[in-house]
Simulated scan of single mutants.
Amino acid sequence: MAPDFSLEGLDGATHSLSDYRGKPVVLNFWASWCGPCREEAAALVKTAARYKEQATVVAVNLTASDDEAAARSFATDQRFSFPVLLDRLGTVGELYRIRPIPTTLFIDAQGVVADEALGALDEEAFARRIEALLKPAD
């Protein structure tokens, strides 16, 4: 099971991972200073739009090692339309043992981590992993 957590989002609301149970979640950890995160951002935005009915993208900014103003600016510039959560104390990054970033976890509708990707993904890689989550178990 993916450990549950609650963080404040850029929208000022508190979001919990468990809020999204019922459909797959793409949980992306990033920082504004991270080059590969910048490379991946457009693919993440397109993926969120493509799969918005079937899966939820949630981005966790590792704010403890980033600048919050830079993170807000990055999310705005990249047109992140999905929840962007602020890990100001680094507790969620530690909980998930995030080391290289970006790191993306693919969590099924029941809340189980089904896949993990270390490093930047392109649209095709995101799609392949999400499609695997959407296939009914045999």
Rank of each mutant, 00 (worst) to 15 (best):
Gln110Pro: 07
Tyr96Pro: 05
Phe106Met: 01
Asp115Gly: 09
Val92Pro: 06
Leu85Phe: 05
Leu89Ala: 13
Glu94Met: 14
Gln110Thr: 14
Arg88Asp: 13
Val113Trp: 08
Gly90Val: 09
Leu95Asp: 12
Thr104Glu: 02
Leu89Val: 11
Thr91Asn: 10
Gly111Met: 08
Leu85Ser: 03
Arg97His: 10
Leu95Ala: 13
Asp87Gln: 03
Gly111Pro: 10
Thr103Ile: 10
Tyr96Trp: 10
Leu105Gln: 09
Thr103Ser: 12
Ile98Asp: 03
Val113Phe: 02
Tyr96Ile: 05
Asp115Ser: 14
Asp87Ala: 00
Asp115Tyr: 12
Leu105Tyr: 15
Ile101Cys: 06
Leu105His: 10
Asp87Asn: 02
Asp115Ile: 10
Val84Asn: 03
Pro100Trp: 13
Leu95Gln: 15
Ile98Tyr: 06
Asp108Trp: 02
Phe106Cys: 00
Leu85Asp: 04
Ile101Ala: 07
Gly90Asn: 09
Ile101Gln: 02
Val92Lys: 05
Leu85Glu: 06
Ala114Pro: 03
Ala109Val: 05
Leu105Asp: 01
Val113His: 07
Leu95Cys: 10
Thr103Leu: 07
Ile101Arg: 03
Gln110Tyr: 11
Val113Gly: 07
Glu94Arg: 10
Gly93Glu: 02
Ala109Pro: 05
Val84Ala: 03
Val112Arg: 11
Arg88His: 12
Ile101Asn: 03
Val84His: 00
Ala109Phe: 07
Val92His: 00
Glu94Asp: 11
Leu105Phe: 15
Leu105Val: 10
Leu105Ser: 00
Ala109Tyr: 06
Leu86Asn: 02
Val84Thr: 06
Asp87Thr: 02
Thr91Gln: 11
Gly90Ile: 12
Arg88Pro: 08
Arg97Cys: 13
Tyr96Val: 11
Ile107Gln: 02
Asp87Met: 05
Pro100Ala: 14
Pro102His: 04
Thr91Val: 12
Pro102Leu: 04
Arg97Phe: 14
Gly90Leu: 09
Pro102Trp: 05
Ala114Trp: 00
Thr91Gly: 11
Thr104His: 07
Val92Tyr: 03
Glu94Ala: 12
Asp87Gly: 05
Val84Glu: 02
Gly93Pro: 07
Ala109Ile: 00
Asp108Gly: 07
Leu86Ile: 12
Ile101Gly: 00
Gln110Lys: 14
Val92Thr: 11
Arg88Trp: 10
Glu94Gly: 12
Leu86Arg: 00
Ala109Thr: 04
Pro100Val: 15
Arg99Ile: 13
Thr104Arg: 01
Leu89Phe: 07
Ala114Asp: 01
Leu85Tyr: 05
Glu94Lys: 12
Asp115Pro: 08
